[in-house]
Design a protein around this nucleic acid. Structure first.
Lengths: 346, 346
DNA sequence: ATGAAAGCGCTAACAG
DNA sequence: CTGTTAGCGCTTTCAT
């Protein structure tokens, strides 16, 4: 195990004061003779000096760490979000501390405290499901948090806090649009002409928007969306799988699933019944996160563009660092349609 | 944004010295009058005092943070590993800093430095692929690292460093065993009687062991494993998918895939050709990590037991904290067979 | 151009 | 039983 070499060690080795070394190593525009500069650099690197970040954080009040609290890192979307965020953060020399709230208010609360006590400069928070239903409690925690907080993805009422999300309503609209086009592209056999969806009932301020965007666009185009064609899901593969029979039996031939996992489950069951996608059923998913995990994905889907989301998160927090008192800002990434092979005729 | 209240603030509010407050709040067994104790506790909590961890780390030389460097957090296995590790670490009050090496030696190197400069108490490292081929360079970094390192999963030559992994050879053996049983369970039609595998060629010290365990067990049982029944894969869905035709055409009816993703891809292609699993082909996967992501999995597979792996990681590092000079120790978790529905007759 | 000194927030001796 | 003192490793005035 290596030993810890301090600034003082370097100073002693060179025969100057710690202050001088600090100045040089931090590239401060103080006029120190070039020879000294070079010498200090050389000695420091040959001694493998690494500044102690804790000490530095103590005095500068900046840790170059940010926190990320997600409901569950085993949700592919959040996993990707983390990776994308780390990619952009690391370029500015930041590390990311991640923690899982398990969608629990209590755990989230303790995480906010715990992570901020670590001195992070900013905290990205995907609010727990339980918090979405207890906005007042969440707000209290956020306001007490000694560092800026940015809501991510789940945009709860956030006049008091920065937020970055995706335009879910637009995503729903895009899904409706392509399904409508598909309907127009070719006449369906009898008993396959209806439109349906697998949607999630949650207070996360996401599923309802996707549904609203979808339903509104359908209505505007005069395409009916009947109650028996709306099946509840829970974002998991199995719920898509289980939705298939009801949809098929209702004569649905075009389905919007609120995420890709459910779309895959749906597709599997459809094919198990000896039917084909998209000939017998068109399917649109949501997320487009599967390919990032090495899962082959030929699903036509609405992409959330996780990289753009992460980039925007970073840009928002940097602006907040620069102007701590600026008014809170919420921004939304635009989703887009990725056309692959599961929608008939497009 | 909340304000930062320090120990001194609390001390001033109570009218005692900072030291006293520190003693009380850390539950030190110093005999301080109970009334003072209670009063200090009360004031501290009402002022919402949170100790500054950076300052504490500076003096105690313990940060209560550990690092985890993985090749890619978008690999489901590592994603699960992180979650499992966080679960166990948080119970001891530890936070985890995660970073992706992208399997690059260079990036890993800079991560080891960067993370350890943050003062982590320990570092869990899944060596980058590139490092597995440059053990000397890796070793140098590890030995220079000012905190204990634990190799995880990819157990490179590690006489000098603790390690925790899975017994991959045993996993391969288990896969062979169940496939052999399956063969015995029912006679196969002609042209489906051979055994094959989709395996990965890598220097990660994992794929080769799985293969070796598999091949050795087959040999011992007198079951042939012919060259044309061994197809190369890359751990991704698509490579399993693409392996299917060659395997089928070679008359293979029982396949071991070195991970679940490839097994799923293989299965998909087999079914696309109108065949059935397990009637026409038995498939054994490896990992059993898919269900954790909400992916329905009815694959018969070799489970790595990520939770046990993480628990063992934690136990190893704790022991290292306790005895910094103890000899390095490598331990291996035993994998086990999870019987589901993709092996014929078992 | 460089060094001395103060102090970030906390803990750990040591006095009292 | 409690307060004072002295740093942890670093940055940052302010003198020199």
């Amino acid at each position: 195990m290596g030993t810890r070499v301090t600034l003082k060690d370097v100073a002693a080795a060179v025969g100057v004061s710690p202050a001088t070394v600090s100045l040089v190593l931090n590239g401060k525009p103080v006029r120190i003779s070039d020879e000294r500069r070079a010498q200090i650099q050389k000695v420091a690197s040959s001694m493998r000096y690494r500044p102690n970040q804790a000490a530095r954080a103590l005095v500068t009040r900046r840790s170059n760490m940010v926190g990320l609290v997600v409901p569950d890192i085993e949700n592919m979307f959040f996993s990707s979000l983390f990776k994308a965020l780390e990619d952009v953060a690391i370029r500015d020399g930041y590390s990311v501390i991640v923690a899982n709230s398990d969608d629990s208010r209590e755990r989230e609360r303790s995480l906010i405290c715990g992570v901020s006590a670590r001195g992070v400069d900013g905290l990205f928070l995907v609010p727990a499901l339980q918090s979405c239903a207890q906005e007042a409690a969440l707000r209290r925690d956020v306001e007490e948090c000694p560092c800026p907080v940015v809501f991510v993805d789940r945009l709860v009422d956030s006049g008091y806090c920065d937020g970055v999300g995706v335009d879910n309503k637009e995503g729903g609209r895009l899904a409706a649009e392509v399904l409508i086009d598909s309907l127009a592209a070719g006449a369906r056999d009898a008993g396959k002409g209806r439109v349906g969806c697998v949607c999630v009932e949650r207070t996360d301020g996401i599923s309802d928007l996707r549904f609203r965007g979808f339903a509104d666009a359908l209505a505007k185009a005069g395409v009916p969306l009947d109650a028996e064609c709306i099946v509840k899901g829970d974002y998991r593969y199995s719920s898509g799988y289980e939705a298939a029979d009801r949809l098929l039996d209702a004569g649905v031939g075009a389905v919007f699933c609120e995420n890709d996992l459910m779309a895959m489950g749906l597709r599997r069951r459809v094919e198990e019944r000896g039917l084909h996608v998209p000939e017998d059923m068109s399917i649109v998913g949501y997320d487009d996160v599967l390919p990032r995990f090495g899962l082959l994905n030929d699903l036509t889907t609405i992409s959330q563009n996780v990289d753009a989301l992460a980039a925007e998160c970073w840009s928002v927090v940097r602006e907040r660092f620069a102007k701590p008192k600026a008014p809170a800002r919420t921004s939304r990434i635009q989703p887009h349609l990725v056309t692959r092979s599961t929608v008939f005729g497009v």
